[in-house]
Simulated assay, not measured.
Amino acid sequence: MTQPVLMYTTAVCPYCMRAKQLLKARGVAAIEEVRVDLDPERRDEMMQKTGRRTVPQIFIGTTHVGGCDDLYALDAAGGLLPLLAADA
């Protein structure tokens, strides 16, 4: 079982799509998506939690991974799978 994954996204975001593809390739079955383009209050929430305005913003468990490039860098460094598998 993997850690829960929360991703702040918008409808037409190529980086969001790339991030989702990588997570699914690493065995993540379910991603909780928060569409900030449909809910401005959730965008404010995202900005307060992360200090960032851009999407995607990805959380694995309670860890803020960052955006798509951050996710790919974490994977390249060998840190993504251990984070996904960490005890909840």
Rank of each mutant, 00 (worst) to 15 (best):
V36M: 06
P4L: 09
V5G: 08
V34S: 03
A25F: 06
T2A: 06
E33D: 07
L23H: 05
R26T: 00
A85F: 01
R43A: 15
G51H: 10
I60Y: 00
Y72M: 10
D44Q: 11
V36K: 11
G66F: 03
G78C: 07
H64V: 03
L38D: 14
R26S: 11
V28P: 04
T50F: 04
A77D: 12
L22Y: 05
R53E: 12
I31E: 03
K49T: 00
L71V: 04
G51C: 09
T62G: 13
L80S: 00
L81S: 14
P56C: 08
L22F: 07
T2L: 05
Q57G: 07
L80A: 08
R52V: 00
Q48N: 12
K20R: 15
R18Y: 04
L80I: 02
A30L: 13
C68I: 09
M47N: 03
D37F: 09
A29T: 13
Y72L: 14
A76K: 15
I31C: 14
A29Q: 15
C13R: 02
E33M: 13
K24V: 10
A30G: 05
Q48G: 07
M7G: 06
G27N: 12
Q48A: 14
V28D: 07
K20F: 00
L80K: 07
V55H: 03
V34K: 14
D75I: 01
L71D: 02
T9H: 13
G61T: 01
L38W: 09
V12S: 13
T10M: 15
M17N: 01
E45I: 12
Q3K: 14
T9D: 02
V34M: 01
A73T: 11
L83N: 07
R42H: 00
K20M: 05
D75K: 07
T54C: 09
Q21H: 14
M46R: 05
V65F: 06
L81H: 08
Y15R: 06
Q3M: 12
H64N: 13
L71G: 05
P40A: 10
I58F: 04
A30K: 14
L71T: 04
C68D: 06
A19Y: 05
V36S: 11
K20W: 08
R18G: 05
I31S: 14
M7T: 02
K49C: 09
P56F: 04
R43C: 13
L84Y: 06
C16W: 06
G67Q: 09
V55T: 11
Y15W: 11
M7C: 03
R52H: 05
T9V: 15
